[in-house]
Amino acid sequence: MMNFEKLDVWKRSARLSAELYKATSQLRDFSYRDQLTRSGLSVPSNIAEGMTRSSPKEKCRFLEIARSSIAEARTQIYIGIEIKYLPSQKALQWLDETKEISAMISGLIKRIESKN
């Protein structure tokens, strides 16, 4: 069983989630903030849950949920930039980070699938 805490993709997604929480803590639009922080939090949570599963199929299922959540967060970041809820310079960095995290999750899924 792989220790999820050693995975760079888990570390980076957990860091991004924390940054999203901090950056939106003063935001009055609770529903937007809630959606963004939930999707961000879902990524490292599902990576952790997936990597502790014993079957490769289960691992991949949770990783696919994590990949969907990072796409959801990316969408919410784009909208946050457009409606001026997020600082655009920082938000553009987050968009790049979501793309890299998504690619890392895809690579991890491929690695798990190729072992079977």
Score class of each variant (00 low, 15 high):
Asn116Gly: 09
Thr24Tyr: 01
Glu19Asn: 12
Met104Ile: 01
Ile81Ser: 03
Tyr21Asp: 10
Ser88Tyr: 02
Ile105Lys: 01
Phe62Trp: 12
Thr98Asn: 04
Gln93Ile: 00
Gln26Asn: 15
Thr52Cys: 13
Ala103Asn: 10
Thr75Gly: 02
Leu16Tyr: 03
Pro56Thr: 13
Lys115Arg: 13
Gln26Phe: 12
Gln93Arg: 08
Tyr85Lys: 14
Ile81Tyr: 05
Arg74Gly: 02
Glu19Met: 12
Thr75Ser: 05
Val9Met: 09
Ser68Leu: 05
Ser106Lys: 08
Glu49Pro: 08
Ile109Asp: 03
Glu113Met: 07
Ile65Trp: 06
Cys60Asn: 13
Leu41Ala: 14
Arg33Asp: 03
Ala91Lys: 03
Glu5Ile: 12
Ile70Gln: 05
Ile47Lys: 10
Asp96His: 01
Trp94Leu: 01
Phe30Cys: 07
Glu72Asp: 09
Arg67Trp: 08
Ser25Lys: 14
Lys59Phe: 10
Ala91Ser: 06
Ala66Cys: 08
Ile105Arg: 03
Glu19Pro: 00
Ile101His: 01
Glu113Thr: 05
Trp10Lys: 11
Asp8Tyr: 12
Ala23Val: 07
Ser42Trp: 06
Glu97Asp: 09
Arg15Ser: 13
Asn46Thr: 03
Thr24Ala: 04
Arg12Tyr: 11
Thr98Trp: 05
Glu5Ala: 13
Leu20Pro: 00
Leu27Phe: 05
Tyr32Asn: 02
Glu72Phe: 03
Lys6Cys: 01
Leu92Phe: 08
Met1Thr: 12
Ser54Asp: 15
Asp8Ala: 13
Gly80Gln: 05
Gln89Ile: 07
Leu92Met: 11
Ser42Gln: 10
Lys84Gln: 14
Lys59Arg: 14
Phe4Leu: 09
Arg111Thr: 10
Phe4Ala: 10
Leu108His: 04
Tyr85His: 09
Arg67Ile: 01
Ile112Val: 13
Arg15Pro: 00
Met104Lys: 11
Ala14Phe: 13
Asp8Gln: 14
Leu108Gly: 06
Tyr85Pro: 00
Gln76Thr: 02
Ile79Asn: 04
Phe4Cys: 09
Thr52His: 13
Leu108Cys: 04
Asp96Ile: 00
Asn116His: 06
Leu92Val: 00
Gly80Pro: 02
Glu82Thr: 12
Ala66Trp: 06
Pro87Val: 08
Ser25Gln: 14
Met2Thr: 14
Tyr78Thr: 03
Pro56Leu: 12
Thr24Pro: 03
Ile79Gln: 08
Ala14Arg: 15
Thr98Phe: 02
Leu36Tyr: 07
Arg15Ile: 10
Leu108Gln: 06
Ile70Arg: 01
Ala73Trp: 05
Trp94Met: 00
Leu92Tyr: 10
Asp29Ala: 09
Glu19Asp: 14
Arg53Cys: 15
Ala66Val: 07
Glu100Arg: 09
Glu64Arg: 15
Ala71Gln: 12
Tyr85Glu: 05
Ala18Asn: 13
Glu64Asn: 14
Pro44Tyr: 07
Ala103Phe: 05
Asp96Gln: 07
Lys84Tyr: 07
Met2Arg: 15
Arg53His: 12
Ile101Lys: 02
Ala48Asp: 11
Leu86Gly: 01
Ser13Val: 08
Gln35Cys: 02
Ile77Met: 03
Ile47Trp: 08
Lys115Val: 04
Ser114Val: 00
Glu49Ser: 14
Asn116Trp: 06
Lys90Glu: 07
Gln76Ser: 03
Arg74Ala: 07
Ile101Val: 06
Met2Gln: 15
Gln26Lys: 15
